[in-house]
Amino acid sequence: MNKPSITVFAALITLAFLGVTGSSHAQAAALSTEKQDPNRFNRLLPPKDKRTPPVAEDGIHDPKGAGVKVLQEPREAFGVLIKGKGGNYVDWVKSLDKKKIKPLYDLDDPELVPMTVDMNIVREVKGTMPDVVFPHEQHTQWLECANCHPAIFIPQKGANPMSMVDIMLGNKCGVCHGTVAFPVTECRRCHSKAKPMKARQKVSAKSTRK
């Protein structure tokens, strides 16, 4: 937001709170009684019961629109899928494997099945975290080579510098992981390969020397 629009916005808020109508008085009062305990147990962790809320209460759908009355509740759809730990709280890989979902691969030919490639790329990770294994198999179930090559990744092992911060900023793996595919909070699904013993000792020796 630029400066002038912030000012306008602030002015609008003040105006509304001064009570232009009776109803805004009532709403302002309701808001103040909802004030939270400053020393509540979890200040920053969003509560579990806020996951997968009803469409009308999710904060972006307009409860006054006609759309919310017909849209499907995600809870209803996810009930028959295999649960996951983050994102949609659905394990999309297992749900596909176990045929809980049967997404089309082609609009013209519903029988077409993806050409999957079973090729794992291991990326050695700096520090103590387990190495990252990138599986082509699970990706080519959903995506085509051209979705990643060459725009996101040059198809050559090690040719693409990556780091965790870069991924969290939405680049490389973070184009999809953190927007649509399972999010970065599920560390172990990517960091899945234990480091060879020697490398681990080297790292811990380095950290104790300090």
């Binding site: 995600p74 759809a77 659905v90 959903w142």
Partner: peptide
Amino acid sequence: PHWFHRIRFRCKICHSD
């Protein structure tokens, strides 16, 4: 809604085709 569409379609249909 991605969740709704990915139950029915793979990413490739929308993001390639």
